[in-house]
Nucleic acid binder design. Structure first.
Lengths: 129, 129
DNA sequence: CGATTTCTGCAAACCGCTTGCAAATCCTGC
DNA sequence: GCAGGATTTGCAAGCGGTTTGCAGAAATCG
């Protein structure tokens, strides 16, 4: 039987606490170190990749070219705040109806989707007033 | 008065022919060479960046970490075909109503959005049958 | 305890994008 | 036409984040 993947476990644990929403590898690397589970960067990378491959976490790329990881739970979309650069989760706006309408209209087959809004998060919007 | 930006012009020209939809820098670089407007890669890069900054073209990043450029015309979304890897334009499914509903619900301010569907393009879907 | 299997760390490679600098090019005003 | 001035272009090197090869460490099973 194989060894236990310590880092992956620590990583899931970390993410489950939701102190943060979308984790970059750097975030994970730093956070793991703080929680006494320090690990090499490539180890963090591989653990994250593995979890993504296993479907436990989602990996998504932002305009800054950095990958973000988050727990794969109920599907939701994101708002990228142009002010504080935070990636805020928002409920999904694309229902099955819209997907099938689009399929009928264009002749494609949709499996998944990903929406990224650009704008202001509640905090930054509030601060503007 | 400044000189004429030759490559930018050739690039816009190329894109306007719509032989292709979303261009990577490599695509542009190769296509320009074929059309007798060969240029250095960094020149292509800079021209594309400039056009994007001027709002003439849109720049978007895909999961493969490569930037794509396309003419900034009527807003539309995309379907990334998981089979042939093509990026197919599809009409936008997010109306203003949905945006404002989301704004009211979550307290954010939306400026833009970008949707990427994953699935099969019409060609690949057809080939599957 | 030993074999087997996997995870981990380290260092180096990679990839696509970016940038600094000097030379080439074009427009304008004379 | 031609000097002056503003930019683009090519070249080569640099950069950030990710990815990989390899050897050593750790854990489970028998």
């Amino acid at each position: 039987m194989p060894r236990k993947p310590l880092i992956s476990a620590a990583m899931l644990d970390l993410m489950a606490r939701r102190e943060h929403h979308a984790w970059t590898l750097e975030d994970l690397h730093a956070a793991l170190a703080e929680h006494g589970a320090a690990a090499n960067f490539s180890t963090v990378f591989r653990a994250a990749e593995k979890l993504a491959a296993d479907g436990l976490v989602f990996k998504l790329l932002l305009e800054d070219g950095r990958a973000r990881f988050e727990l794969a739970e109920a599907h939701h979309d994101h708002l990228h705040c142009t002010e504080c650069d935070e990636l805020v989760p928002v409920p999904c706006v694309i229902g099955g109806g819209q997907a099938s309408a689009l399929e009928a209209e264009t002749g494609v087959a949709i499996q998944t989707h990903q929406v990224i809004f650009e704008g202001l998060c509640p905090a930054c919007l509030g601060a503007r007033r």
